[in-house]
Amino acid sequence: MSAFRYLAQNWPEVGAKLSQHLSMVGAAVLVSLVSGLVLGILFTRPGLKQVGQALVGITGAAQAIPSIAVIALIFAYTGIGARTAIIALSIYGIVPILFNVVSALLLVPAEMLEAAMGVGMTPVQVLLHVELPLAAQSIVTGLRTTVTLDISTATVASVVGAGGLGDIIFVGLSVVRPDMIVAGTLLVAGLAILSDAGLALVQRNVVSRGLVHTP
C-alpha cells in the first residue's frame, strides 16, 4: 500500500520518469524495428539466403547475451546519458525482431513465391503482397518480445544516467525505501503488460484471418 502512497505523493516526478522511460523505449523500438525489417528482408533475398540462414543461428544465440553487457559496452564509447541507453536498447532489441523476420521469411514456401511470380508480381509486389503478410504473425511476435525486453532493460539503463523508471528503483535501493522499489517495479511491469496487450491487438488486425488456424 505504501507503494501506491508513494506514487500518489510524487506523481509529477514519477510521471516525468515514466515519460522518459517511454520515449527511451519508443525510440529504441523504432530503430530496432526498422533496421530489423530492412536487414531481415535484405538477407532473405535470392542470393543472400545463406546469410539469412546463418543469421537465424547467430540471432538465436545472441538472445542469450545479458542486456547489462550491451549497455556496459556502449557506455564505454558514448558515456553517460539517454543516448547510450537508446543505442544499447536499439542494438539489443534488433535481435528478436531480426530473428523472427528472417526465420519467417525463410519459411515462406518456395511454391508460394513461384505462384506469386507466376501470376506476374514484381519482386517488390511479391514482398509486399505475399511474403510480409505471410510473415506478419511472426514479425509482430518478434516486436512484442523486443518491446517487453526494452521496457525491462531500460530500467537497468538508469545506471548509465539514462533516467526513466529505473531511477525510482535504484534510488529506493540506495536509501532503502522498499515502497519506492515496489512502486517502480509495478510501473515497469504494468507498462510491459499494457504494451504487450496493445500489440496483441495489433497482431490480430495485421494477420489475415486466412492464416489463423480454424478448428
Binding site: E111, M112, A115, M117, V119, H129, V130, L134, L211
Partner: peptide, 16 residues
C-alpha cells in the same frame, strides 16, 4: 506472365 493463366497444385492459392 500477367497475360498467361498459371495453375499449380493447391498450394498456389494465397492463404492470406
Amino acid at each position: 506472365r500477367r497475360s498467361i493463366g498459371y495453375v499449380i497444385q493447391e498450394t498456389g492459392l494465397f492463404p492470406h
